[in-house]
Amino acid sequence: FIDQHRAALIARVTNVEWLLDALYGKVLTDEQYQAVRAEPTNPSKMRKLFSFTPAWNWTCKDLLLQALRESQSYLVEDLER
């Protein structure tokens, strides 16, 4: 899901800070967390977050999807259609 809908997630996720907090310490290191937060816009934050995903396994991507479902369920539901 995460890889399949990358472009839509970059464009449409609005609550990136919540995602970062949910992933911090589980998937994201402090350095990665700070790097994403330093980006000026939500799309650039999501691009930076996605720059780390090639090194993630399915469990990490599932944690991101779970966080998306909790914070932006309407968006996930729309993309699952």
Rank of each mutant, 00 (worst) to 15 (best):
F1E: 03
F1Y: 00
I2M: 11
I2W: 05
D3F: 03
D3Q: 01
D3K: 02
D3H: 05
D3A: 03
Q4I: 14
Q4T: 15
Q4M: 12
Q4G: 04
Q4D: 08
Q4Y: 03
Q4R: 12
H5C: 09
H5N: 12
H5I: 13
H5V: 12
H5D: 03
R6S: 09
R6T: 06
A7Q: 14
A7P: 08
A7M: 11
A7G: 12
A7W: 09
A7S: 14
A7R: 12
A7Y: 06
A8G: 06
A8V: 08
A8N: 06
L9Q: 00
L9N: 03
L9I: 08
L9F: 03
L9Y: 05
I10F: 02
I10R: 05
R12V: 02
R12W: 00
V13N: 01
V13G: 05
V13W: 01
V13T: 14
T14N: 11
T14H: 05
T14C: 04
N15E: 12
N15C: 04
N15R: 09
N15F: 00
V16K: 09
V16G: 01
V16S: 02
V16Q: 01
V16P: 09
V16F: 00
V16T: 06
E17L: 01
E17N: 10
E17G: 09
E17R: 05
E17Y: 05
E17F: 00
W18R: 15
W18M: 14
W18K: 15
W18Y: 15
W18D: 15
W18H: 14
L19C: 12
L19F: 03
L19I: 12
L20I: 12
L20N: 03
L20Y: 05
L20W: 00
L20E: 04
D21L: 04
D21H: 12
D21T: 10
D21K: 10
A22N: 13
A22W: 12
A22Y: 14
L23F: 03
L23D: 00
L23Q: 03
Y24F: 06
Y24L: 13
Y24A: 11
Y24I: 08
G25C: 06
G25F: 01
G25K: 14
G25D: 11
G25N: 05
K26A: 09
K26F: 07
K26V: 13
K26S: 13
V27R: 01
V27C: 14
V27K: 00
V27A: 11
V27E: 04
V27T: 04
V27F: 08
V27G: 08
L28G: 02
L28P: 01
L28Q: 01
L28K: 02
L28Y: 03
L28R: 01
T29S: 11
T29I: 02
T29E: 08
T29A: 06
D30I: 10
D30K: 08
D30H: 15
D30Y: 10
D30N: 09
D30R: 11
E31M: 04
E31C: 02
E31K: 05
E31A: 11
Q32S: 05
Q32E: 10
Y33W: 07
Y33R: 11
Y33F: 10
Y33V: 15
Y33D: 10
Q34C: 10
Q34G: 05
Q34P: 02
Q34Y: 09
Q34V: 08
A35L: 11
A35M: 11
A35T: 09
V36Y: 00
V36M: 02
V36W: 03
V36R: 02
V36C: 14
R37V: 12
R37Y: 12
A38Y: 00
A38I: 08
A38E: 12
A38L: 12
A38S: 13
A38R: 13
E39M: 12
E39D: 00
E39G: 04
E39W: 00
E39Y: 07
E39N: 10
E39L: 10
P40W: 02
P40M: 01
P40V: 07
P40N: 08
P40I: 09
P40Q: 08
P40G: 08
T41Q: 07
T41L: 02
T41I: 03
T41E: 03
T41S: 11
T41R: 01
T41K: 03
P43W: 10
P43Y: 06
P43T: 14
P43R: 13
P43C: 12
P43I: 06
P43N: 11
S44E: 14
S44N: 07
S44G: 13
S44Q: 14
K45G: 03
K45E: 02
K45C: 01
M46C: 00
M46I: 03
M46K: 02
M46F: 02
R47F: 03
R47H: 08
R47E: 14
R47W: 07
R47K: 14
K48A: 03
K48I: 03
K48H: 04
L49K: 02
L49G: 03
L49M: 01
L49S: 02
L49T: 06
L49N: 11
F50V: 06
F50E: 02
F50R: 02
S51N: 02
S51F: 05
S51C: 08
S51L: 00
S51T: 12
F52Q: 08
F52T: 00
F52Y: 13
F52E: 00
F52P: 00
T53V: 15
T53F: 09
T53W: 10
T53I: 13
T53A: 13
P54D: 15
P54W: 13
P54A: 14
P54T: 14
P54L: 09
P54F: 14
P54R: 14
A55W: 08
A55H: 14
A55R: 12
A55I: 10
A55N: 15
A55S: 15
A55L: 13
A55Q: 13
A55Y: 13
W56I: 08
W56F: 07
W56Y: 00
N57Y: 02
N57T: 13
N57M: 08
N57F: 10
W58D: 15
W58V: 15
W58H: 15
W58F: 15
W58N: 15
W58Q: 15
W58I: 11
T59Y: 13
T59W: 14
T59D: 14
T59K: 14
C60W: 11
C60I: 07
C60K: 14
C60R: 10
C60V: 07
C60N: 13
C60P: 05
C60E: 15
K61I: 00
K61A: 09
K61G: 05
K61Q: 05
K61T: 04
D62V: 05
D62R: 11
D62G: 11
L63I: 09
L63T: 09
L63S: 05
L63G: 01
L63R: 08
L64I: 11
L64N: 04
L64G: 04
L64P: 00
L64M: 15
L65D: 06
L65W: 12
L65C: 11
L65S: 07
Q66I: 12
Q66A: 09
Q66E: 12
Q66P: 07
Q66C: 07
Q66N: 06
A67C: 05
A67S: 06
A67W: 07
L68T: 00
L68F: 07
L68D: 00
L68R: 03
L68Q: 01
L68V: 06
L68H: 09
L68E: 01
L68P: 06
R69W: 04
R69P: 03
E70K: 12
E70H: 09
E70V: 11
E70C: 11
S71A: 07
S71F: 02
S71V: 08
S71L: 02
Q72D: 15
Q72M: 06
Q72L: 05
Q72R: 04
Q72Y: 09
S73D: 09
S73F: 06
S73P: 15
S73G: 14
Y74S: 15
Y74E: 15
Y74N: 15
Y74R: 14
Y74M: 13
Y74V: 14
Y74D: 15
L75N: 05
L75K: 00
V76Q: 00
E77L: 08
E77Q: 12
E77D: 13
E77N: 11
D78S: 12
D78W: 12
D78F: 13
D78K: 10
D78Y: 11
D78H: 14
D78A: 10
D78T: 09
D78I: 12
D78L: 12
L79W: 00
L79A: 04
L79T: 02
E80T: 12
E80Q: 13
E80L: 08
E80S: 11
E80V: 08
E80Y: 06
